[in-house]
Design a protein around this nucleic acid. Structure first.
Ligand SMILES: [Zn+2]
Ligand SMILES: [Zn+2]
Ligand SMILES: [Zn+2]
Ligand SMILES: [Zn+2]
Lengths: 126, 126
DNA sequence: TTATATTTGCAACTCAGTTGCATTAACATC
DNA sequence: GATGTTAATGCAACTGAGTTGCAAATATAA
């Protein structure tokens, strides 16, 4: 079930997602809003925003949860399927808006997938 | 640092990896060996076997750790890079030995990647 | 057999994420 | 603007996978 009331927590959290490509970890959000929003609320609001097709979530290399803005998703379905790039130097994760080529797997019906790529980002590259 | 002594724990655990394609979760191994091996030992032995290039690990959709046999890896490097297929019905995970096509990402240096695919396996398909 | 270093078990811990419940606040209606 | 309803929030306690420190056990070499 998604968001029904436009509360302060929702406004504050949404404001942290500036563009379509930069992901933010829940751990980071809990830290940032330590004084303003309870961590339970943060988890619940993010979960609802994902239900609404406003944000999408995925797990980083360490298994922690990250969120990023969706592009063109709705309550009914998340159409925004793309890989994520995690910088091994600075730790940030970006959405990479390219189509990924899934392999053919005989006798299996694919419903979803996640591709997480590690490496050095544009900033940490040189 | 890898395995140095061939202990009973190592033998028991290795014996759980029957073929090159079936992965086993650590949670499952801890359950199976509840009476015989301490969970700390299980985590440590698996970690060493990965260092040795005998097993490789990855995270399932829920972020829990899974291990599977390597094919042609060594202490010095894990060359066995492949996607994993997680059945949404029965929960098992298989190694899929196909080459994956990573997207071109400008200005970024890729060092590693993980592709996890969900769907219905051969058994749960129909 | 003895010495030595690795491995194991145990208990306690860490920490991301969850749950139940009482309180607060958004919002519709008057 | 005041009031009532119900979603949303805060809090504290919990869950469970994975980790740590240390003393006891065991594999291996001498
Ligand atoms: Zn970077
Ligand atoms: Zn994304
Ligand atoms: Zn299945
Ligand atoms: Zn594998």
């Amino acid at each position: 079930m998604g968001i029904i009331r436009k509360t302060q927590s929702v406004a504050l959290l949404l404001n942290e997602f500036h563009d379509q490509t930069t992901a933010v970890s829940v751990i980071e959000l809990v830290k940032r809003f330590r004084a303003k929003i309870n961590k339970t609320t943060i988890y619940r609001v993010l979960d609802k925003l994902e239900d609404d097709g406003v944000l999408h979530s995925f797990l980083g290399k360490d298994g922690n949860k990250w969120y990023a803005k969706c592009a063109g998703c709705s309550k009914s379905k998340h159409t925004d399927l793309h890989p994520h790039f995690e910088c091994v130097v600075c730790g940030k994760i970006d959405c990479i808006s390219v189509d990924i080529q899934l392999p053919e797997i005989p006798n299996r019906e694919i419903t979803s997938s996640q591709l997480l790529i590690q490496g050095k980002c544009e900033t940490c590259h040189r």
